[in-house]
């Protein structure tokens, strides 16, 4: 089962490698990982997506809590929550028709073309992980993707729940 862990930790050098090292040392998987400082400069927030059964994810959370640099851990997948990722896609249009097609697909996915250079387009799309996958799938049917870069998921709980 997929779990999205929101981890609040000290914004100190080495903290990220303690978290990442724990996953590799104990054989847990990481589907994606995203980290940046919060509004409080002493704290970083890390969103980590992993696949594990209930018992394993409970153990992961306990082990994370045991790290001295980790202040709080919540599996937000247990609550109603929002997840977003950011993706940049570079694509080459071969004809004028394909330029139109790229523009249409981008509009449908509510993405934005943020750069054009000769016939090379760079598109920005944000959204849930499913949507980002679908966007790539649709583009691939007609066009040649040159490059894709995407962030891991960042997540937040809905309503009054905070970390």
């Amino acid at each position: 089962m997929r779990h999205t862990l929101s981890i609040l930790m000290e914004n100190e050098s080495g903290a990220l490698s303690r978290v990442a090292g724990l996953f590799s040392a104990r054989g847990y998987n990481i589907e994606s990982l995203n980290v940046a400082v919060t509004e409080d400069p002493t704290l970083s927030r890390l969103t980590l997506v992993t696949h594990a059964n209930e018992q394993v994810v409970e153990q992961i959370m306990k082990q994370l809590n045991k790290l001295i640099d980790v202040v709080k851990v919540v599996d937000i997948a247990g609550n109603s929550h929002i997840e977003r990722g950011l993706m940049l896609v570079k694509i080459k249009a071969s004809t004028i028709d394909s330029c139109i097609s790229i523009k249409q697909i981008t509009d449908i996915f509510r993405g934005r073309i943020i750069d054009v250079n000769e016939l090379i387009y760079t598109i920005q799309v944000t959204g849930g992980m499913d949507k980002l996958r679908a966007f790539i799938g649709t583009l691939q049917q007609e066009h040649t993707i040159l490059e894709v870069v995407r962030s891991g998921a960042v997540g937040i709980m809905r309503g009054k729940h905070t970390l």
């Binding site: 018992q55 409970e58 153990q59 306990k62 082990q63 809590n65 045991k66």
Partner: peptide, 11 residues
């Protein structure tokens, strides 16, 4: 003393 020891190997 260590919550991570609990239900690690045996429920």
């Amino acid at each position: 003393i260590d919550p991570a020891s609990i239900s690690k190997n045996v429920v």
